[in-house]
Amino acid sequence: MKIALLLTYSGDMFVKITTSGPRCYVKLVEAYRDAAGVSRQRVIATLGRLESVRAGEADSLVNGLLRAAGKPTMAVEVKPVVAFKE
């Protein structure tokens, strides 16, 4: 049931980079208006540290979100390791 709600959601979501001390974090954030009409932001999920996301450690999470949205997943390039002797 929650997946259906996520797929039909029409609000504004975006990725935000925040800092806490020396570390940077990547967060999925929702923009909304409260009962008084004031614009607010709510953190939906913390995706991890920025350096981990940049290193590709969040690829499986991104692919899962793309699959849930019915969109094509990211192409993962696999490079074979070949050793040559002369």
Rank of each mutant, 00 (worst) to 15 (best):
T18P: 03
Y32F: 15
A45Q: 13
S60N: 02
A75N: 06
Y25Q: 00
R40T: 05
E51S: 13
P22V: 05
A55L: 10
A69D: 13
K2W: 09
S10D: 08
A75I: 10
I44L: 14
R54W: 01
R23Y: 06
Q41C: 10
S39N: 13
G37H: 01
D12V: 08
F14E: 08
V76M: 14
R49K: 14
V15Q: 05
T18R: 09
R40D: 05
R23N: 11
S10A: 15
A55D: 14
E57N: 04
R54H: 07
K71C: 11
I44P: 01
V38C: 15
M74I: 11
A69F: 12
A69M: 15
R42K: 15
A4C: 05
Q41L: 12
A4M: 11
A58L: 06
C24V: 03
L6E: 05
K27W: 01
Y32T: 07
E77F: 09
R49G: 01
L66F: 10
V78T: 11
V81F: 15
A83Y: 07
S39M: 08
T8W: 02
K85T: 13
S10L: 03
T46K: 00
A58M: 05
T73E: 11
L66R: 13
K79V: 14
E51L: 03
T8H: 06
